[in-house]
């Protein structure tokens, strides 16, 4: 589904290489996790894939079902089925959460040549999905993420994911700022979305999120490269021994 080949990325503003040749293949229906120390390039990878400004791709490729992602505008990537759950979901005063969701859902449908959802159908769907994430009517009415707690923001990200039904979901440190209960709720939301045709890339510092969202493959990223890949046991190894051993091992 997602195919990344020798992806090399610099910061646009300064001469600094962040990604130094990332290779990653994610098959439909699988969950991959990327772990790694601070500054290893995990978040940059998620931003570059979703099309954020400020990065310059100097080499390599990234495709989604064969389509070159790096050539597309962010909204085109979204319409192609890519979704990024932000580490820091953005507050947008003045835009109601419901308006935001509806605009996004219909924009993607339109881009794919599908009919827009009627107000009634949309409402029904959003209410049902919000309920499972314990998002109440008030949170739907309020401006996007404004005044939301850390947990509410992350639940709101998962609600967007559930409404947009993307093929490829990237979760950028979705566990940061979550207490145990919130992490459970968010993980349940993600697990409910796991399916044959959908893949996940979970970026995290800690093993604990992976207790809830069980990965098929775990990658360790350091200094802009994936240095080791393995099964779920690799995450446990990191949890117990830190990154030092693995870094030393590949050095």
């Amino acid at each position: 589904m997602l195919e990344i080949k020798d992806l090399r990325v610099d910061l646009e503003e300064e001469e600094k290489s962040i990604l130094k040749g990332v290779d990653l293949t994610i098959e439909p229906g699988t969950v991959h996790a990327i772990m790694g120390p601070n500054g290893s390039g995990k978040s940059t990878l998620s931003y570059v894939l979703s099309g954020k400004d400020g990065y310059e791709v100097t080499g390599g490729a990234a495709t989604l079902d064969g389509e070159d992602l790096l050539d597309l505008e962010p909204e085109e990537r979204a319409a192609a089925g890519l979704f990024l759950a932000f580490q820091y979901p953005v507050e947008i005063p003045g835009v109601g959460n419901m308006t935001f969701l509806r605009t996004a859902v219909n924009a993607q449908r339109k881009a794919r040549g599908e009919e827009e959802l009627s107000a009634g159908d949309f409402l029904k769907e959003v209410r049902a999905k919000a309920k499972t994430l314990k998002i109440d009517a008030d949170m739907l009415k309020r401006p996007v993420n404004v005044g939301f707690s850390g947990g509410e923001k992350k639940r709101n990200e998962i609600l967007q994911m559930a409404m947009l039904e993307p093929k490829m979901c990237i979760l950028d440190e979705t566990d940061s700022g979550l207490d145990v209960d919130a992490m459970k709720l968010v993980s349940e939301g993600v697990n409910a979305l796991r399916s044959e045709g959908r893949a996940f890339l979970v970026i995290t510092h800690y093993q604990r999120l992976l207790d809830h969202i069980k990965p098929d493959v775990v990658h360790i990223m350091a200094d802009g490269k994936i240095i080791k890949s393995g099964g779920p046991e690799l995450a446990l190894e990191v949890e117990n021994n830190g990154y030092a051993d693995i870094l030393a091992e590949v050095a």
Binding site: G51, D53, T103, A104
Partner: peptide, 29 residues
């Protein structure tokens, strides 16, 4: 706000519509 603009675009809203949405939001108060 470029951050908000990117957030909206990453959800599939095109540049023009996202800009207009943020402009209306600015006027909302």
């Amino acid at each position: 706000d470029e951050t908000a603009l990117f957030y909206l675009r990453s959800r599939g809203v095109n540049h023009r519509d996202a800009t207009n949405l943020l402009t209306l939001a600015f006027l909302a108060e």
